[in-house]
């Protein structure tokens, strides 16, 4: 057997087939994109270690991730925030980590998405474990994992076929995701989860604007709305206001005591989702109670004329232009209040 010949055939066919695979997915409209995974998060988390009192750390769930645009924030303040919000996650574990595992005394902005913030303190529950897994990964990551991430970034930025996601979007194109799309019926008798497509792009420092398609293509936006409906209607667990508030308040007290600047932020939501939040997690009962208990500075979007007309295309997040506007205006409001100066004015 001629192994050299086999190698030449293998290399040639591999190059041709990978180029063809890449070209095919580009022809389908895919563009290179980073994965908002635990590695990307951990790199930002590391920045919090040496951050100064002038720095800003953003915590929360996907609303803070989408609605606070880092470029606009930097333009208004000269400081680029450290984006540590995580989609589908409660901010409690991350805030607990920042308070207890760093000496950070700058500004922490905590996004309050009521359904996630007040959900639970049970460590195994998804909102807690999603955040805690990232905190744990940051603590435990090996040098090899850091190097792998660093080496993967140029590939992710330039090649479509390597794009995959920790989230497991329906339109991912890695082999496992492609196979998972094959549907030969349902024998479990359980309702099937609607397809959940990626609806944002993320940059290396986790600046995360919504994709233009989500803002302009109503059918696509509706597919995301179906997902929110499925998640919310399938959740039978009642909110746990007391435990979550108590958990957060303990860390808030510690953080404020050491001179940190804590700001609570309620980002916009719309439509059916907003209706549900108002009904089942009413502001007076949840948000106001949290603000009162923690004694933190607080911003609720509905309190400001500038934000009253903002509409979320898929009920939960702002389009990229609206997010840029929201960020700029929010910073102006906060600056006018003196909320961003790190003084004990809480």
């Amino acid at each position: 057997m001629n192994l050299k010949q086999a190698l030449i055939v293998a290399v040639t066919l591999s190059v041709v087939s990978i180029v063809a695979w890449e070209a095919y997915w580009r022809s389908q409209g895919k563009i290179p994109d980073l994965d908002d995974d635990k590695n990307l998060w951990a790199v930002q988390r590391a920045k919090a270690e040496g951050a100064s009192t002038q720095d800003v750390v953003l915590l929360g769930s996907s609303r803070v991730l989408f609605d606070i645009q880092l470029n606009e924030w930097e333009k208004e303040t000269g400081v680029r925030p450290i984006q540590l919000a995580s989609a589908g996650a409660s901010p409690l574990p991350t805030f607990h980590d920042i308070v207890n595992n760093t000496d950070f005394t700058g500004t922490v902005i905590v996004g309050v998405t009521p359904g996630l913030f007040f959900s639970t303190t049970f460590p195994e529950a998804s909102p807690m474990s999603r955040a805690q897994n990232r905190v744990d990964y940051y603590e435990d990551r090996t040098y090899a994992q850091r190097l792998n991430h660093w080496l993967s970034l140029p590939l992710q930025k330039n090649l479509v076929f390597v794009s995959t996601s920790e989230e497991g979007w329906t339109d991912d194109i890695d082999l496992k995701s492609l196979l998972n799309r094959i549907d030969l019926g349902n024998r479990t008798g359980k309702p099937e989860f609607p397809p959940f497509y990626a609806f944002q792009y993320i940059e290396e420092d986790r600046n995360n604007p919504m994709s233009e398609r989500t803002a302009t293509d109503t059918v696509f936006a509706n597919s995301i709305k179906k997902v929110w409906k499925a998640i919310i209607t399938s959740n039978t667990n009642p909110p746990d206001k007391e435990s979550t508030t108590k958990f957060f308040a303990a860390d808030a007290e510690k953080f404020l005591k050491r001179g940190g600047n804590l700001i609570l932020l309620r980002c916009p939501s719309s439509g059916w989702l907003k209706g549900g939040e108002d009904k089942f997690l009413p502001r007076a009962e949840f948000w106001d109670y949290l603000v009162k208990t923690t004694n933190a500075k607080a911003y609720y979007y509905e309190d400001y004329e500038q934000f009253k007309d903002l509409t979320c295309p898929e009920w939960s997040h702002l389009s990229a232009p609206d997010a840029r506007y929201f960020t700029s205006e929010l910073v102006k409001i906060m600056k006018a209040d003196g909320a961003l100066s790190n003084t004990k004015s809480n």
Partner: peptide, 19 residues
């Protein structure tokens, strides 16, 4: 060698797209 090369390339492609 052709068959071996084709099998080899196929495995490599699947590794690359499985990631």
């Amino acid at each position: 060698p052709w068959v071996l090369g084709i099998v080899w390339a196929f495995m490599f492609l699947l590794i690359a797209i499985a990631q």
